[in-house]
Simulated scan of single mutants.
Amino acid sequence: MSARDEILGRVRSALADAPDVPTAAVSRRTADPSVDIVALFCERVADYRAAVERCSATDLPARLRAGLPEAARVVVPADLDLEVPGAVPDDGLSAGALDALDVVVTRARLGIAETGTIVLDHGPGQGRRAITLVPDHHVCIVDAGQVVADVPDAFDVLDASRPLTWISGPSATSDIELDRVEGVHGPRRLHVIVVG
């Protein structure tokens, strides 16, 4: 028996008769019904210097086309359920090929109103993490029904076993003199279209 096994055995023996200590319940805030969480989400996304707009499902294709820069090279997840004219579907494009593209269009898993955060779990219409981080401009579509009030509500919905990408505005960092630099760790521009 190793020293490690001996020590762990003593700890287990000492704890065998210890009473179970009840774990305090985590108090969850409920969203104030008078607060429009979708409007709050849009406000918080805009606070991060991201472009944000709301539209109906029927207006989405036109808004999407209007939001794409002219002559932009666009990549989309292979399973995106929207027609994006001229877009290249991602079929495992290399980092170099992704770097040559200007814009990525994806859907989101959910949006968090309190923080203005978009969460991708890389499910249908969201693509793999690389396509959301390499192109310089990310257009992300969030359905109004996917907006939750706060982070605890998000964790109630999300599957922690899936890869999660949390996006709070365009990628940005600051140096010691507080000079802001955008696009270091991901897209320099974020455009969020909230549908509904």
Rank of each mutant, 00 (worst) to 15 (best):
S2W: 03
A3C: 10
A3D: 14
R4N: 11
R4G: 09
R4M: 11
E6R: 15
E6C: 02
E6D: 11
I7L: 12
L8K: 03
L8A: 08
G9Y: 00
R10T: 05
V11C: 10
S13R: 09
A14G: 13
L15V: 11
L15D: 12
D17T: 15
D17Y: 00
A18F: 01
A18K: 00
D20M: 07
V21A: 08
V21L: 01
A24M: 08
A25K: 01
A25E: 06
S27A: 14
S27K: 01
R28D: 14
R29M: 12
T30D: 12
A31E: 12
D32V: 03
P33E: 13
P33Y: 02
P33N: 10
A39V: 04
A39E: 14
A39G: 14
F41G: 14
C42T: 10
E43T: 13
Y48S: 15
R49C: 09
A51R: 15
A51T: 15
R54H: 05
C55N: 07
C55A: 09
S56D: 13
A57E: 14
L60K: 06
P61K: 12
A62S: 14
R65L: 15
G67E: 09
V74T: 14
V74N: 03
V76S: 01
P77G: 08
A78L: 02
A78E: 12
E83P: 03
E83L: 11
P85Y: 00
P85M: 01
A87T: 11
P89F: 06
P89G: 10
D90N: 10
D91Y: 01
L93E: 05
S94I: 06
A95I: 11
A95T: 12
G96A: 13
D99F: 14
A100H: 02
A100F: 02
L101T: 07
D102A: 09
V104E: 12
V104I: 01
L110V: 03
L110E: 07
L110C: 07
G111A: 07
I112G: 11
E114M: 08
T115G: 09
T115N: 08
G116V: 02
G116Q: 01
T117C: 08
I118V: 15
L120E: 03
H122Q: 05
H122N: 04
P124D: 09
G125Y: 04
G125R: 09
A130R: 12
T132A: 15
V134G: 12
V134L: 15
V134N: 07
P135M: 05
D136N: 14
H137P: 05
V139P: 01
C140R: 10
A144W: 00
A144G: 14
A144E: 06
Q146H: 13
Q146G: 04
V148H: 00
V148N: 02
V148Y: 00
V148L: 03
A149Q: 05
A149I: 00
D150K: 06
D153R: 00
A154D: 06
D156G: 15
D156N: 08
V157P: 02
V157W: 00
D159M: 05
A160Y: 06
A160P: 10
R162T: 02
T165Y: 06
W166Y: 07
G169V: 04
S174H: 13
S174T: 11
D175S: 08
I176W: 12
L178M: 11
R180D: 11
V181D: 06
G183S: 02
V184M: 09
V184K: 07
H185E: 07
L190A: 04
H191G: 01
H191P: 00
V194D: 13
G196F: 10
